[in-house]
Design a protein around this nucleic acid. Sequence first.
DNA 1: CCGATAATGAACACGTTGTTCGTTAATATT
DNA 2: AATATTAACGAACAACGTGTTCATTATCGG
Lengths: 183, 183
Amino acid sequence: MDRRQRKTREAIFKAFTELLSKKDFSKITVGEIIDGADIGRATFYAHFETKDFLLREFCNELFCHIFDTEKDDKNGHRHIFDCGGSESVFLHLLKHLQKNDNNILKLLSSQNNELFLKYFRKNLEELIESHTHLFENSNKTDIPASFRKNHIVSAFIETVRWWIENGMTESAEDINDWFFRII
Amino acid sequence: MDRRQRKTREAIFKAFTELLSKKDFSKITVGEIIDGADIGRATFYAHFETKDFLLREFCNELFCHIFDTEKDDKNGHRHIFDCGGSESVFLHLLKHLQKNDNNILKLLSSQNNELFLKYFRKNLEELIESHTHLFENSNKTDIPASFRKNHIVSAFIETVRWWIENGMTESAEDINDWFFRII
DNA sequence: CCGATAATGAACACGTTGTTCGTTAATATT
DNA sequence: AATATTAACGAACAACGTGTTCATTATCGG
């Protein structure tokens, strides 16, 4: 990749991240991004079709980091790491969130972030699917699997939002504990 | 209220509802609303400060209808009816949703509807609070009440969205049953 | 060094928002 | 029925955001 392209791209991401710490995604304009990145308007559109595409790529990089995903060499599918031993994948996630890399907290708690939540949910669902053993139902049941999956993912996302909105005063361990006891 | 005002207001609501059946709230423009309502631009803004205010009032009327709320004569606070006997308030709600009054389904399942969901959640929380007995925890627990409430409300909302997005092929009774069994 | 490519910057058309104001019509009041 | 009040009209307007265009300049890789 051309050094100029890389520089521009990084400048855009940096400006975008800074703006995210100040305001909701929906309130951020392309004008502000190019001002922050100190690039021309046309340059921005040469890199990203729209603001939403910027968010999409931003999320991709973010989730790759948070979920510790790696390419599966075999078939090219993304493979989600087992987060190691007995620690809950959710606890692992909660601890990661606490670090607040890249203003992910802002993205999770802001008002107009449907897009971000959509991507977050998608990644969470993949994660869940690779850890189905955690949620196997011992007793026979007619509740559809997709219903259960939706329930778990939704509950987790909203639990996290509740945590953030209430100032994250509780420990990640408590949240994880409560979450599992309710589930 | 002046008859002219009432007429205009109703025309706006009608046009708004029709537009909601066709597209997401965020894609609807004031221009389209006034075209549909056949009123002047200034007239719209004389009635509603912004598009969001229109949604807010729309939701107010909608929830009053769905949740069967009534003014409490005593202190002016809104009082939520007990939906009668042993039937779950959730089942009552699910059945109501199935009727799809005022395109509420569209609002619940559309992409950019943070505002609507916020109002929906607010009303649901009030409903929950008036039915705490349904969710009393028999065993002593240190899980905060607001945590539990958030969990229940979130799970219900997302359950409904799952239901809608999957074509509402299941009966309201099944959904209600599954929801309670998981909870 | 040179051909390719990225960035520039200024302008542009377009759409949406929210406001203004003089005029017209409907309404409530007496 | 006359009058004062109030709402709607409608046309125009400024402000802002979006996404595109294009000729020019700077930087890159080979």
